[in-house]
Amino acid sequence: MKIGVPKEIKSNENRVAITPAGVMMLTQADHEVKIESGAGLGSGMDNEAYKSAGAVIVPSADQVWAQELVVKVKEPQPSEFTYFRKDLLLFTYLHLAAEKGVTEALLENKTTGIAYETIQLANGGLPLLTPMSEIAGRMSVQAGVRFLEKVHGGKGVLPSGVPGVSPANVVIIGGGIVGTNAAKMAIGLGANVTLLDINIERLRQLEDLFQGKIRTLASNQFNIAEQVRKADLLIGAVLIPGARAPKLVTEEMVKTMEPGSAIVDVAVDQGGSIETVDRVTTHEDPVYVKHNVNHYAVANIPGAVSKTATYALTNVTAPYIFNLANNGLKDYVQSDKVFANGVNTYQGKIVHEAVAKAHNKRYIDIRSVFE
């Protein structure tokens, strides 16, 4: 198969979709890999490293997008829609439930869109999202505490406090991968940590994991409102695979927070779980203020630690790319239900149920298409 890897063009996105090791694995299996010149520089991988692994370095994005399979990190930007076509397989993070423009462009051009974030195991695990969720969870605290500093517009609170002065209150809504990793970081900084989740069994697991170092609460409107009011740092860590994030924190709740508090909504790329997160920000300009609260709404948080993130991502994506190249789409979909969950659009149809529901469009099972 002919595979293309473009340079990411989203603001301050320095990850790359494949490493030299991944290139070598593919080229040794007689696949052809073309990489846009400089695609890996933001992650510390130069053209020579890719060439030594067997890749062909090309000067333009046009040449990369002309391949059968294009592998990316982030959802295509509007300027990339012109590359969409019927015989293109696109494998990347898509977040289509919150990306109407990308969805419509894929459907209009009958492009096959395969999303890392909806490849789902039988136990509900999301293997291609997990490493980025781990990073985003940890960085959500790192970013949030920065905007609690007075010099960054915050209330001037040290997460750990000092003897005689209380630590900051960090409230995390969602006990999945993001929330768990956020809790690890917040505990490490010495903060008071409260985590809310709708799944009581998950809260039991977290109680055992953290051995009393966090407080857990059932997620309901009353408890959320109470904890938001007390929060110095509020972290939204809610995910429904493939679907828009539910709005669990209302604008009225945010208004009860003290001036200079901070919010980090990790679910912003799925529409956000906090009502006042009504725009996406960038690493270049990460925060806006609403109701005197700092809102951090960067949609590609792991892009700030691109080298770590690229290796973490490609560790899990490489086997799927390899199997797709070896088997082709039809055979891979028919033989692997986990991978089939990743296909979001095919030949002008939405083939992921949550995405179809988000856009109020007809859903067609991808496996039925190939019967």
Rank of each mutant, 00 (worst) to 15 (best):
Q63G: 09
V338Y: 03
G101C: 00
V298C: 10
A267M: 02
F322W: 05
G137N: 02
T180K: 09
I240N: 10
S60I: 04
N47I: 08
D331S: 15
T282M: 09
T92Y: 00
T111E: 02
D208N: 15
G101E: 11
E226V: 14
L158V: 14
T317N: 04
V305I: 13
I57D: 12
A183L: 07
Q347P: 03
D30V: 02
Y93F: 15
P246T: 04
M253Y: 05
V5R: 09
Y346V: 11
G153K: 03
V64W: 12
D285V: 13
D87I: 00
I350K: 13
E275A: 14
K72L: 03
T250R: 07
D208L: 14
V193P: 10
I119D: 03
V355G: 10
A318G: 00
Y346Q: 11
I263Q: 07
N192T: 14
T92V: 01
N323K: 14
T276V: 11
L195Y: 07
P159A: 05
P131W: 00
Y83V: 02
A312D: 04
T180P: 05
A122K: 12
L148A: 05
P127T: 03
P78M: 02
M257T: 09
I173D: 01
R204N: 15
T92I: 00
E36K: 12
I9S: 13
V165I: 15
Y346F: 15
S368M: 08
E275V: 07
D278R: 13
N323T: 07
P163H: 05
E258G: 05
G328E: 11
I3W: 08
R146D: 10
V343Q: 11
Q227T: 13
E251C: 00
G153Q: 04
R204A: 12
F222N: 14
M1P: 13
G175T: 04
E226Y: 11
T308V: 08
E75T: 08
V228S: 11
G271W: 04
L324N: 11
G188F: 09
V277L: 09
E134P: 03
I35T: 13
G260Y: 06
A122R: 07
G271H: 07
L106Y: 04
E8F: 09
V16S: 14
L69H: 06
Q120Y: 00
R367K: 15
A105F: 02
A358E: 10
N341A: 07
Q77Y: 00
E258N: 13
R279W: 06
M139G: 01
K330E: 15
K337I: 14
L203A: 13
V58Y: 11
K290L: 12
G176F: 01
N223W: 09
I35V: 15
G137V: 03
A245M: 06
R15A: 12
A225K: 14
Y332D: 11
K230W: 08
P20L: 11
N315D: 10
L26M: 15
Q334M: 15
V171K: 03
R229G: 06
I173A: 01
D87M: 00
E99H: 13
G303V: 06
Q142G: 05
G54V: 12
P302I: 02
S368F: 00
Q347R: 15
K361H: 04
T314I: 02
S335Q: 15
A115W: 01
P6C: 08
S335C: 04
